[in-house]
Computed example of a mutant assay.
Amino acid sequence: MISQYIQKCRQILDTVDAQKTQIEEAARWFADTILAGRMVHVFGSGHSRIMVEEMWPRYGSFPGFNPIVELSLTFHNLVVGANGQRQAMFLENVPGFADRILRNYDLSNQDAALVISSSGCNVVPIEMAELFQRRGVKVVALITKDHAEQSTSKRSDGKKLSDFADLILDTGAPVGDAMLTVPNLDTPVAPGSTVGGAVIVNCIKAEVARLLTEAGHPPKVLSAGVVVGAERAVDLFEAAYDEHAHRLAKLYANVGIPSYVSQTNR
């Protein structure tokens, strides 16, 4: 089983490798957004949250990304009872929830977005992408192509995440996500979308870092003290989080209904 899973992951890597052109395009869009002083919005419900947190913040990552993690859609640790999985799966198919989330941000057509959903068929991520596009935000969708194509949308009009994407990336996982068949077990095990998704996210991250550096604005990368020294690690940590705050402030300064505070800021 172990060898089989590793082999399946190698096939996923081949699928990612075949998407170099698309990954480079996504990275260019994201770099343009970051260089403009804006943010790349990263959203995923359910286990797609893993890819959001893989992008930022963690070692080897840098500011410029706005991780939108709605706990009611992603907090699965209790499994059952209050804040359990059933409620989260219900909520990710409630129309209008995405609009309530994005109501918190003053979006710009200089922004970009990465919306992650393996099936591409749940309502909230689909509506997120739709709302981003309405505001002129370029949308990159990270889906599992084979699974999404064979799945049925939960939206009443049948539209999927791919219908509201300017660019589509594929995790390379199979239909149903689980990749292995165990003898005498009638259900497959060991999913692969997280593997492909994490590889794609980090490919984008690395390419964005190259583009920012070549543009004369090298990113402030969160780095371990054992690599860069304790003092520089602290400096990078503080500078990166301060930059994140400065970028995020732009998303809040003039959001929604004007106040004397926002009018003064103008």
Score class of each variant (00 low, 15 high):
Q110H: 13
V124D: 05
D111P: 02
E130W: 04
P95N: 08
R103H: 13
A113H: 08
I116E: 01
R134N: 14
D111V: 05
A113R: 06
G96W: 10
L107I: 00
N104A: 14
V123Q: 11
N122L: 01
P125D: 00
M128C: 14
E127T: 11
N104E: 13
R134C: 10
N122P: 02
S117R: 03
A113C: 10
A98Q: 08
A113P: 07
V115E: 06
R134F: 06
D106W: 10
S119A: 07
S117N: 06
Q133S: 05
Q110D: 14
L102F: 09
C121H: 01
S117E: 03
E127V: 10
S108M: 04
S119F: 10
L131H: 13
S119Y: 07
F97K: 13
L114N: 00
L107F: 08
P95W: 09
V115T: 12
L114C: 00
I101Q: 09
V123Y: 03
I101V: 15
C121F: 06
A112G: 10
S118P: 06
I101G: 05
V115D: 03
A112W: 07
S117I: 04
A113S: 13
D111R: 02
R135I: 05
E130I: 00
R103I: 00
V124M: 03
N122C: 05
R135F: 02
I116T: 02
D106E: 14
G120E: 04
R103V: 00
F132S: 04
F97C: 05
G120T: 03
R135A: 14
P95F: 05
V124N: 04
E130K: 12
Q133H: 04
Q133K: 14
I101M: 12
N109G: 08
D99Q: 15
F132I: 02
C121G: 09
L114T: 02
P95K: 07
I116P: 05
I126M: 05
C121A: 13
S118C: 13
F132L: 06
F132A: 06
I101Y: 12
Q110K: 15
A129L: 03
N122F: 08
D99Y: 11
N104V: 09
V124A: 04
R103W: 08
F97P: 08
L107P: 04
N109T: 12
I126W: 00
M128A: 11
L107T: 03
P95H: 10
G120H: 07
Q133L: 01
D111G: 02
V124Q: 03
L107E: 07
Y105K: 09
I101W: 06
L102G: 07
R135K: 15
M128I: 14
N122Y: 10
R100Y: 11
N122D: 08
I126K: 00
A113Q: 08
N109H: 14
P95G: 11
F97G: 06
M128K: 05
N122R: 03
N104F: 08
D106K: 13
N109Q: 14
I126Y: 02
S108W: 03
M128T: 11
G96R: 10
Q133M: 07
A98D: 09
E127N: 07
R135V: 01
D111W: 02
N109V: 01
D99K: 14
N104C: 12
A98L: 09
P125W: 00
C121T: 15
A129C: 09
D111Q: 02
I116C: 03
D99L: 13
I101H: 06
A98T: 12
